[in-house]
Design a protein around this nucleic acid. Structure first.
Length: 703
DNA sequence: GTAGGGTTAG
């Protein structure tokens, strides 16, 4: 009878009805009292996902053996119910049942998934007590538990206790080093492995470490090894490889691997390629692929939507983004935190008034996480008003979430924008307390904040405290800080240090050094840098670099050279370059040229108040009152209003804002008397710093 | 009847 029932149970694996009728017949024939039969019934219920039914059988069993306990333990661990699994495990010990290798490996799996390190240590001591540490199953489960808890040294110790390690033991150990992103050790261990032990479980996690263009050659070596071992058809390897090639910047290699998978693609293959296109700014390919996924009727998931939503940014994708939002609602994914976070950051990046859409999404999201908060905070710090970003930061601190490096970095950028030193210092103290002071992004924002507030020595201190010496963003910010402070030579010497220490340069580095040259009148140095960007540093000059160079020439009074530079540009100059040039014309008194450029700008950007105001200044300079009046008239006709430039000063935690000729302050008389005194004093100290007394267009800040 | 692996948002 036993074999009959066993085979019946086997055949009823995919049907609850068949299984319950078999169960009934087992009860009817009295076979359910048999431990073996009951264990099989329990196991089948669990496999069909009916844990409650299995538990009922377990509770009603007159006799239980180790298999009964182990089956129930793994039933609970595999669906994440560690607490219940742990109760069963301790119950098993109390009942005097024989705790064996199966029990340990299963309970350890649950502990690993829940990352309950302290429970894991307790199990480990029991493992030693009962002499199971050399058992490859138990040992590998221990390695995995320590690895998942990020205790790589303990994982290594447990690994060494295993008498005969196999590929699973190796993979679990390497997985630990992958998780803590210790590339060196992970690859060292990989080098120690025998070829025969390497399988898909070895390569897939290792590949996730290769996510930088600098590691592209290593990626190709690993790829070659995969081919050598004949593992190139393994889907997990292919999926990881698509992501790695994309992260290393090679979209063509990613696509080649993706195409090589043929019809065996699973959802992760599609999602990896989609994320790759999205990351590498191949937006059109991403949209095409998304449509192809729909066409092939592959069931999409959360990953598919987060990737495609992050592809939609900017004006051209606004309508598409909104349609995708509808699709998300239709699919019932709007309350999934990661999807909603993608929607929030998508709306924030849309150019037209999308902050309120983002905010209403944020407010209606039930399970907000740190990414949700930080997305909003970053949006507010980029689009303003900065005061709101600061308020939002205080709300975040009142929530039960821990403020992280993203949040600190964003709110400090708003402090820079507001130039509120005291508030910035308070947030600096908070960041230090939370150990984020040496984080490259937080430190860079601190550098920015102190530079903007004029305390360059504190900016330098923050720069010195950064843990990684190769942080491009930190170097860039420091260079820019000195540039704005008028210490161009210091900026240039930092730039050469950066080159000597092989810190990666990017386009921002050049904007910063060109600004430095511009503010310190280092014309030749600046031009040399601009012209060496592409041939020496392989970075193509962008519009902002030309604008900085035009500013450099303009401040030096070399308006003809500025004109020639614009004419020699490989790109046609954008309004920013032309506005900078307009400033140069005004400074050099080139009225005709200024009029020409301004007229062109008035055609391209008729709604921008900037050109009208500057052109009218140009005419005032040379007392051409009629022309000035006609500019004002056109401005009025077109309904363009001057946006006043505001300045502000922080006094005892309070920000006082004022603009030109402002007489609204109660202490106005005294303030103006003080300004008069200071002006007199300044005249005494007037130096030969001729390049810094002209307002730079690039520095103009409006609130 | 035991242990390991690939995709997302700030």
């Amino acid at each position: 009878m036993k074999p009959f029932l066993a085979s019946l149970l086997e055949s009823s694996l995919n049907s609850f009805q068949k299984l319950s009728s078999t169960h009934c017949s087992a009860i009817k024939h009295g076979y359910i009292t048999d431990v073996y039969i009951s264990n099989r019934v329990m196991d089948s219920y669990i496999k069909l996902g009916f844990l409650g039914q299995a538990h009922k059988v377990f509770d009603e069993m007159p006799h239980r053996d180790s298999v009964s306990w182990n089956t129930m333990i793994s039933g609970h661990t595999s669906c994440g119910k560690l607490e219940k699994a742990w109760c069963l495990f301790t119950g098993m010990i109390r009942s005097g049942s024989d705790v064996d290798g199966y029990s340990f490996s299963r309970v350890l799996k649950g502990v690993a998934c829940a990352k309950m390190f302290y429970l894991g240590e307790q199990v480990h001591s029991l493992v030693i007590k009962r002499g199971f540490e050399s058992n490859v199953y138990v040992g590998s489960a221990l390695v995995d538990m320590y690895a998942k808890c990020e205790r790589v040294e303990d994982a290594f110790d447990a690994f060494q206790e295993i008498s005969e390690v196999n590929s699973v033991s190796w993979n679990a150990l390497i997985g630990g080093f992958v998780q803590v992103r210790d590339v060196e050790t992970a690859f060292w261990l990989f080098g120690c492995m025998e070829m025969r032990d390497m399988d898909d479980g070895t390569f897939a996690p290792l590949l996730t470490l290769l996510d930088d263009p600098m590691l592209c050659n290593l990626l190709k070596e690993v790829h070659a090894k995969v081919l050598k071992l004949g593992l190139e058809k393994e889907i997990t390897i292919c999926n990881a490889m698509v992501s790695s090639y994309a992260d290393c910047g090679s979209v063509s290699d990613a696509k080649r691997v993706f195409d090589g998978v043929g019809d065996s693609k699973d959802l992760i293959t599609w999602n990896s390629m989609l994320a790759g296109f999205s990351k590498l700014e191949q937006k059109d390919f991403a949209f095409e692929l998304f449509i192809e996924i729909q066409r092939t009727r592959v069931e999409t998931d959360v990953y598919t939507y987060t990737s495609i939503l992050s592809t939609c940014c900017g004006e051209e994708h606004q309508v598409l983004g909104q349609s995708l939002h509808c699709l998300v609602i239709k699919k019932g994914l709007e309350q999934v935190t990661s999807v909603s976070n993608s929607l929030i950051s998508m709306y924030i990046q849309f150019p037209t008034c999308a902050m309120s859409d983002a905010l209403s999404l944020f407010e209606s999201l039930e399970a907000k996480d740190l990414v949700s908060w930080n997305s909003m905070l970053t949006g507010l710090s980029q689009k303003g008003p900065s005061e709101d970003a600061v308020k939002f930061f205080t709300y975040l601190r009142c929530s039960n979430l821990e403020v992280d490096d993203y949040a600190f970095s964003a709110v400090l950028r708003s402090c820079s924008d507001l130039a509120t030193l005291q508030l910035g210092q308070q947030i600096h103290a908070l960041a230090t307390k939370s150990s984020f002071e040496s984080n490259e992004f937080v430190a860079s924002s601190l550098i920015l904040m102190y530079s903007k507030c004029g305390v360059i020595e504190n900016a330098r201190k923050c720069f010195e405290k950064i843990s990684s010496t190769d942080s491009t963003v930190a170097w860039n910010t420091m260079i820019l800080g000195y540039a704005q402070h008028g210490s161009g030579q210091v900026s240039l010497s930092l730039f050469s240090q950066m080159c000597n220490q092989n810190v990666k340069l990017d386009h921002v580095t050049f904007t910063a050094v060109l600004t430095a040259c511009s503010h310190s009148g280092l014309v030749q140095e600046g031009l040399k840098l601009l012209h060496s960007m592409e041939p020496v540093y392989k970075i193509k000059p962008r519009m902002e670099h030309y604008a900085a160079a035009v500013d450099l020439l303009g401040r030096a009074g070399l308006v003809k050279e500025a004109k020639e530079l614009i004419e020699s540009m490989p790109l046609s100059p954008d309004p920013m370059v032309l506005k900078t040039f307009l400033g140069a014309c005004r400074a050099c008194g080139e009225i005709e040229m200024a009029t020409q450029v301004a007229n062109h700008l008035l055609e391209v950007e008729p709604d921008d108040h900037f050109t009208y105001v500057w052109l009218s200044h140009v005419y005032s300079d040379v007392k051409k009152w009629e022309e000035k009046a006609s500019v004002k008239k056109v401005m009025k006709e077109r309904g363009v209003k001057k946006v006043p430039g505001w300045s502000w000063i922080e006094i005892r935690n309070e920000v006082c804002a004022f603009n030109a000729e402002d007489r609204s302050h109660p202490l106005c008389e005294e303030i103006y008397l003080m300004i008069e005194d200071l002006s007199k004093e300044m005249k005494w100290f007037e130096t030969d710093n001729e390049f810094d007394d002209q307002a730079s267009l690039l520095d103009v800040n409006h609130s």
